[in-house]
Simulated scan of single mutants.
Amino acid sequence: MDLRSFILCYLVVLTAFRCDGSVSVGVTAVGLAGAVFYAGFDKIRCTFYECCSDRADWIKPNITALTVALDSNLYGQHLVHHVVPRALKAHLLNKQPQKALVMSFHGWTGGGKNYVSKFIAESMYKLGMKSQYVHVFVSTVHFPHERMADIYKLNLQDWIRSNVSKCERSLFIFDEIDKMPIGMINGIKPFIDYHESINGVDFRKSVFIFLSNTGGPDITRAMLKMWREGKKRSDITMMDLEHLIQLGAFNEDGGLHKSELIQHCLVDHYVPFMPLERHHIELCARDEIRRRGHTPTKELIEKVAGEMTYFPPENKLFSTTGCKRVAQKVGFILTSEEYDNIFA
């Protein structure tokens, strides 16, 4: 609110009292002035502090930025590139979605599941993962005890309900959902189902992401079979893998085991993260070396990739840890070489 508007509101209040001394008229004027003042204050506040609005671009989805981030940083996951931006765009551009968007990421560790979650948050919120509207739950930290599953479920319901009531465009990320107590995740079913509102709160604009290692063995077996048949990695489709990870998530022990979310078809997209090959590890090593301010020579890149472990034993096609340990390997090798140069 500018100074002119504030003075105008003040004069309205004075005039209301001076005309006939009516308390009701005065109170009405004060209320009107207060409402205008609050609206102005709220607009100013949202200029400097994060708000659940598009003011100052606090929440302004940018699918182009997400696509660029995936193209520049995520290797060997063409299915993720194909599914995630499209799913997010379709949901965020829909002013009245039928339900919350639910994506379940499956695959071996180090394939990029957390990486993609981070890029999604950065494409939705100006503050990225630091936004107050991004909520991350790590099962081994937040839900460690099987016997407390019922208590966790109630607490989780309260947390989701409270935060979505503050901002409909909230993002919830459940990491290590395969280590969550069995049956607990069913507690969020009402919030991702086809309901316009629950107790006056609309959950349909929210986004839920599950991260899990379940399905990893099934994905790998299918890829090995296709590799032996001569099928290229880039030719693998969602049709080849999606049903495998859905069945794996439902049948394997873990948070989604026999889940009502799967039974009632409330997970919109099962996204497979395929095991990474050596040349993908080399690309991750190149990026990490550059990030540390060094020149990524072919010799150095190959040295980092050679420090990783691969499987199966007969052909060593896939990395056992994806790109997860690349940063540590790069740091160790660079430090060792610098140390050797100093004392050479």
Results as ranks from 00 to 15, higher is better:
D2S: 01
D2G: 04
R4P: 00
S5C: 05
S5Q: 14
F6N: 01
Y10V: 12
F17K: 11
C19Y: 12
C19P: 00
C19A: 10
V27R: 11
A29P: 06
V30A: 13
G31K: 09
G31V: 11
A33F: 02
G34K: 01
V36D: 00
D42Q: 14
F48D: 00
Y49D: 07
E50G: 10
A56D: 10
I59A: 02
L66C: 09
V68N: 13
V68A: 13
L70P: 02
G76E: 07
Q77C: 05
H78V: 06
L79V: 06
V84Y: 03
P85Q: 03
K89A: 12
K89M: 11
A90C: 02
H91M: 04
H91W: 06
N94G: 01
N94Y: 02
K95V: 08
Q96C: 05
P97V: 05
P97L: 03
V102N: 07
M103A: 03
S104Y: 09
W108G: 14
T109N: 07
G111F: 07
G112C: 04
N114Q: 07
V116K: 05
K118A: 12
I120P: 03
A121G: 07
S123T: 05
L127Y: 13
M129C: 04
S131H: 02
Q132M: 06
Q132A: 04
H135R: 12
F137Q: 03
F137T: 00
T140M: 09
T140I: 05
T140R: 14
P144W: 08
E146K: 13
R147S: 14
M148C: 13
M148D: 15
A149R: 15
Y152A: 12
Y152T: 14
L154H: 13
Q157S: 13
W159C: 12
N163P: 00
N163W: 03
C167R: 09
I173V: 12
I173T: 04
M180I: 00
M184E: 01
I185M: 15
G187C: 00
I188L: 06
P190C: 03
P190H: 03
F191C: 02
Y194L: 04
E196N: 08
G200I: 10
S206Q: 01
F208C: 04
F208N: 03
F208P: 04
N213G: 06
N213M: 03
G215K: 10
P217H: 11
D218L: 15
I219N: 12
I219G: 10
T220I: 08
G230D: 04
K231Y: 02
S234Q: 08
D235S: 14
M239N: 11
M239S: 10
D240L: 02
H243A: 10
N251M: 14
H257L: 11
H257K: 15
H257A: 08
L261Y: 12
I262S: 10
C265H: 15
V267Q: 03
D268A: 10
Y270L: 08
Y270E: 11
Y270C: 13
P272V: 10
E277N: 06
H279D: 15
H280E: 13
C284P: 01
A285M: 07
D287K: 15
R291N: 06
R292N: 06
I301K: 08
E307V: 00
E307F: 07
F311K: 11
F311I: 08
P313W: 05
E314K: 04
N315H: 02
K316T: 03
S319A: 15
V326K: 05
A327V: 10
V330S: 08
I333H: 09
L334V: 09
T335R: 14
E337I: 14
Y339N: 11
A344I: 05
